[in-house]
Design a protein around this nucleic acid. Structure first.
Lengths: 250, 250
DNA sequence: CCCTCAGCTATTGTATACATAACGTATTCA
DNA sequence: TGAATACGTTATGTATACAATAGCTGAGGG
């Protein structure tokens, strides 16, 4: 059997990118802070060339911002930036759902979606939901959204949705974890699951407009979810990505 | 007065990126073709490090595709990829128009849009339209779309629209030039101008849904525009960016 | 005659050295 | 005492040398 040498197999560039992203999302680097190449070289273990490649990629990803005089800084986001990002993603996923419905999807292709749905149903059965179950929910929900996106069969759209989800707070379930202790959370999850059910039904019946509308509504729910999380700051530390939010740090 | 040394002022990375993009869009590099760093170094005049940075950026931009075993190749697009990209951009611009309408825009902010509109009206007065006027139209139309995008006041959305427009065929008016000789072209321009008029009106009256709907319709017009262009291949050589289309080269 | 393996070449990935520009500090002059 | 300028230090931009890998070509065996 193959020995564990996963660490050897990845390129230095990828290693540096992952390491830097971790630092960004874990809050080791504060928003607005200038990110030093030399320092990044020390913390990632890679040399300057792959580190620079990683920095360029992270800038394109939206986590870093180029400084005119040279170098990069950690990007800072306002609350509105975040709610806009969520609505943006919802709009794109709405288009994906419409494409899926209009272009036709076989029963076999919908099967994985339905399995996801059933698994989430199972999780939501327990009241109140446990922390572990919450974690599973986040994974399953992300999977549901990814599968739905794939159904659009549109590489440009899939690509764009991936980029829109690169910002951690814009990705599906980004804020759910932040409020697992909140009483309203469970209700929000149940409504969200209902949306999932509707979009599958709409795609099955080739109702493009309905499929699109429900995904946009789904994103609006996520925005309400965000507002709720921001109003209960005590739970925010559960989601490290929040370190990037301007107003949460000032 | 300052001497002309614009060429000195830009960084090697930017220089390489622009040069490579030109090569890509002018068709010097065929879709699917592997792009050699060494060759890029020779043609751009920059050294390998800035060339590599430029390649990474162009990959993120969507013009290149990473090869798993290393290096990059020129990305190839299907006709559907392109029509999807146009519809995608229309959807995003629809959201921008809705944001502009819902969030309120002062009369002063709408002024540049109206100037654009009037300038285009002036151009469309001549029948049939001249090649020079067509060229002006493309510039003005791109400006109109850029101004509209700005009105959304949403940095994440603006950023996403910019990326969606990076693919040349997805950008506003991308195909207009390709069919300036076609009789249907003028009619399409006139309809498009009507859309521009309506979206301004909708934003002025804070009708978000109407503003969004008209921009999506506007994109659908662009898709019809594309189909028309593809059916009249004789005019396609007017738009070098078409070199990237798979079916146009096979 | 075809398939396979080995060696070579070419290209990419990585590291580092060098150049240049920007920022900070200290000193001097007003 | 404050401001401005000059110098030094530090960081980024650029270039190139070195290493590793993948693909190709040729030769040998089945």
């Amino acid at each position: 059997m193959a020995e564990r040498e996963v660490d050897r197999s990845v390129s230095q560039t990828v290693k540096a990118q992952l390491a830097l992203r971790d630092q960004l999302l874990s809050g080791s680097l504060r928003p607005g802070e200038r990110i030093s190449e030399l320092q990044a070289v020390e913390t990632t273990g890679a040399s300057r060339t792959p580190v620079r490649m990683a920095l360029v990629r992270l800038e394109e990803e939206g986590l870093l911002e180029a400084i005119p005089s040279g170098g990069f800084m950690v990007k800072a986001f306002s609350e509105r930036d975040i709610s806009d990002s969520i609505e943006l993603r919802g709009t794109l996923e709405g288009l994906a759902a419409r494409f899926a419905a209009e272009r036709g999807v076989s029963a076999r292709e919908l099967e994985p979606l339905k399995e996801c749905l059933a698994a989430i149903d199972e999780l939501l059965r327990q009241v109140p939901i446990s922390v572990d179950a919450f974690s599973s929910y986040v994974t399953l929900n992300a999977r549901f959204h990814a599968l739905l996106t794939e159904l659009s069969r549109s590489p440009p759209l899939i690509r764009q949705i991936d980029r829109a989800s690169a910002l951690p707070f814009a990705s599906p379930s980004g804020f759910v974890m932040a409020q697992s202790a909140l009483p309203e959370a469970q209700q929000i999850l149940i409504i969200g699951q209902e949306h999932h059910r509707v979009v599958i039904d709409a795609i099955e019946n080739r109702e493009g407009a309905r499929a699109e509308a429900i995904m946009r509504e789904h994103a609006r729910l996520a925005v309400r979810n965000l507002r709720l999380a921001l109003r209960n700051r005590t739970h925010l530390d559960l989601l490290p990505a929040l370190a990037l939010i301007k107003s949460a740090t000032d």
